[in-house]
Amino acid sequence: MKTRDEITPVPRPEKERHELYAAVLAQTALRTVHELFAADTDGVVRSVSLNGHVATIDRATGREVHPCLITLQAGREEFGELVLTQVDRTHLGPGLPPTGSVPGATPRFSSGCPKCTPGPGSRRWL
């Protein structure tokens, strides 16, 4: 069999892309909260509420909007008990129960999360 020295892109199925995108959002939110608590060496911050927004274009109006894709609330004590390297990314996507699958952090996703169109000046990550 002949081999070629080229890479042929194979698109991921849409469902898999959406799940991966949601997991990356959740992982980024968890990492951000981790960094905030780690930077607060005096222990002044007791809890964090993080809202992740994106610049996008509303396809119905053509206007730039900034919807919230993810909200995460975490208390220092409960969050500190997490072993983030052992958190299963399959528990970080849409459809989490209101209490979240990650004790100590409550990620909630917007239903429009994977339907965003990059806005002016935004970077396309996926």
Results as ranks from 00 to 15, higher is better:
residue 43 G to F: 01
residue 43 G to P: 02
residue 43 G to V: 02
residue 44 V to A: 04
residue 44 V to Y: 07
residue 45 V to Q: 05
residue 45 V to D: 01
residue 45 V to C: 04
residue 46 R to Y: 06
residue 46 R to T: 12
residue 46 R to A: 13
residue 47 S to R: 08
residue 47 S to M: 03
residue 47 S to H: 06
residue 47 S to F: 04
residue 47 S to Y: 00
residue 48 V to N: 10
residue 48 V to Y: 09
residue 48 V to Q: 03
residue 49 S to H: 06
residue 49 S to W: 11
residue 49 S to V: 11
residue 49 S to E: 11
residue 50 L to W: 01
residue 51 N to F: 10
residue 51 N to Y: 09
residue 51 N to P: 03
residue 51 N to T: 14
residue 52 G to A: 15
residue 52 G to D: 12
residue 53 H to E: 03
residue 53 H to D: 01
residue 53 H to A: 03
residue 53 H to Q: 08
residue 53 H to L: 01
residue 54 V to P: 01
residue 54 V to Q: 04
residue 55 A to V: 12
residue 56 T to F: 13
residue 56 T to A: 15
residue 57 I to S: 12
residue 57 I to N: 05
residue 59 R to V: 15
residue 61 T to D: 07
residue 62 G to H: 00
residue 63 R to I: 02
residue 63 R to N: 11
residue 64 E to T: 12
residue 64 E to Q: 06
residue 64 E to I: 14
residue 64 E to G: 06
residue 65 V to A: 13
residue 65 V to Q: 05
residue 66 H to I: 15
residue 66 H to W: 15
residue 67 P to N: 07
residue 69 L to G: 07
residue 70 I to G: 11
residue 70 I to H: 10
residue 71 T to F: 05
residue 71 T to V: 11
residue 72 L to D: 00
residue 72 L to Q: 08
residue 72 L to P: 01
residue 72 L to G: 05
residue 72 L to Y: 00
residue 73 Q to N: 03
residue 73 Q to A: 03
residue 74 A to L: 07
residue 74 A to K: 04
residue 75 G to R: 05
residue 75 G to C: 09
residue 76 R to F: 03
residue 76 R to V: 02
residue 76 R to H: 02
residue 76 R to A: 10
residue 77 E to V: 13
residue 77 E to D: 14
residue 78 E to R: 07
residue 78 E to S: 06
residue 78 E to D: 13
residue 79 F to N: 02
residue 80 G to Y: 04
residue 80 G to K: 04
residue 80 G to H: 03
residue 81 E to S: 10
residue 82 L to C: 12
residue 82 L to R: 01
residue 82 L to I: 10
residue 84 L to P: 06
residue 84 L to D: 04
residue 85 T to P: 06
residue 85 T to C: 03
residue 85 T to A: 11
residue 86 Q to M: 07
residue 86 Q to Y: 02
residue 86 Q to W: 09
residue 87 V to N: 00
residue 87 V to R: 01
residue 87 V to Y: 04
residue 88 D to K: 10
residue 88 D to R: 01
residue 88 D to A: 12
residue 88 D to Y: 03
residue 89 R to M: 14
residue 89 R to K: 15
residue 89 R to Q: 08
residue 89 R to S: 13
residue 89 R to I: 15
residue 90 T to G: 11
residue 91 H to V: 13
residue 91 H to P: 00
residue 91 H to K: 13
residue 92 L to G: 04
residue 92 L to E: 07
residue 92 L to N: 08
residue 92 L to S: 05
residue 93 G to N: 06
residue 93 G to C: 09
residue 93 G to R: 11
